[in-house]
């Protein structure tokens, strides 16, 4: 047995693979949002981590100030944060249409710093606790590990979000417009389609996905202003590996990188923060457009 050779019992390996899949689900939802935004707006959205954090904080705020529970927040927070995102797109990002990518990157990076700074000032870096919803507390003993119900739910919810996104983009008329908008916005506009509105909606949707992931993460980690910045760099690596702008690529790569990271945490824990970047470097050398990207 391979696992015996490496000195780890299979139970440990199964457990880690499952956990890797759970983390991969987060990477998938976040990188999916990035891919949607990059695909349609050509913007490298460095504010994604901050918007993910905003999603978690919105859930916390809804519970704290309005007494609304997790299930409401799971729908309300992405809508609220998505609307905020559309405001950002309409009033800030739109002004950068047609200029170099670098400007969008700088603007969104600056926005992320401002948003995080404001939240650190308001709530401190240690963050706030958010309880696991009552229906999902506890867990099940799978024999090789104890799986908290909540973590299982995270995978299910993420896959639903990814599936829904894929369906919208690949199988609906709206999705067809969106894809056409990336290929040739001028021509699409000539057909009477409101392309600026489409762009705003797409950004709002990408941001909503980030906020959705934030709500999913809230009961697991401390709801902290820094939760996004700890994650976002890894997510960017995932998007680069998958290929910028590829929806399917983002999802598959997200899950795969979760698994690879999970295994590294067993065999060489110190390197677990680095392994994804190693994969990124290798992929960039062998396939500069990413695993699923098309060469421009």
């Amino acid at each position: 047995m391979l696992t015996d050779l490496l000195g780890f019992p299979p139970q440990v390996l199964f457990g880690q693979l499952l956990l890797g899949l759970i983390n991969g689900a987060f990477y998938a939802v976040l990188s999916l949002g990035l891919a949607v935004i990059f695909g349609l707006l050509n913007i490298v959205n460095f504010a994604h981590g901050a918007l993910y954090m905003l999603g978690a904080f919105t859930a916390w705020g809804l519970a704290q100030f309005l007494g609304l529970n997790y299930w409401v927040a799971l729908f309300a927070a992405p809508v609220i944060v998505g609307a905020f995102g559309m405001g950002l797109e309409r009033f800030l990002l739109r002004r950068l249409a047609g200029v170099d990518h670098l400007y969008g990157l700088l603007l969104t990076f600056g926005l992320a710093l401002v948003i995080e700074g404001v939240f650190i000032k308001l709530f401190g870096a240690s963050g706030q606790p958010y309880p696991t919803p009552a229906a999902l507390t506890g867990g099940i003993n799978l024999g090789f590990m104890f799986l908290p119900w909540y973590r299982g739910w995270v995978v299910v919810a993420s896959l639903i979000a990814c599936g829904a996104t894929w369906y919208i983009f690949e199988r609906t008329k709206l999705g067809a417009y969106l894809r056409a908008g990336t290929e040739n916005p001028k021509l699409l506009q000539a057909f009477g389609v409101n392309v600026p509105l489409l762009t705003t909606l797409a950004y709002g949707y990408g941001v909503g996905l980030a906020a959705f992931a934030g709500v999913l993460a809230a009961p697991i980690t401390q709801v902290s202003p820094l939760m996004g910045s700890n994650l976002i760099i890894v997510v960017f690596a995932v998007v680069v590996i998958g290929g910028m702008g590829s929806i399917m690529g983002a999802v598959v790569t997200g899950l795969a990188m979760g698994l690879i990271e999970g295994l590294t945490k067993v065999f060489w824990p110190e390197a677990s923060a680095t392994v994804i970047f190693l994969v990124m470097a290798i992929v960039l050398v062998l396939r500069p457009a990413g695993l699923f990207g098309r060469v421009a």
């Binding site: 956990l19 983390n23 824990p269 677990s272």
Partner: peptide, 11 residues
């Protein structure tokens, strides 16, 4: 030895 800071401790 886990990386500092680490975001996920489940593993």
């Amino acid at each position: 030895r886990h990386p500092f800071p680490a975001s996920d401790f489940s593993s």
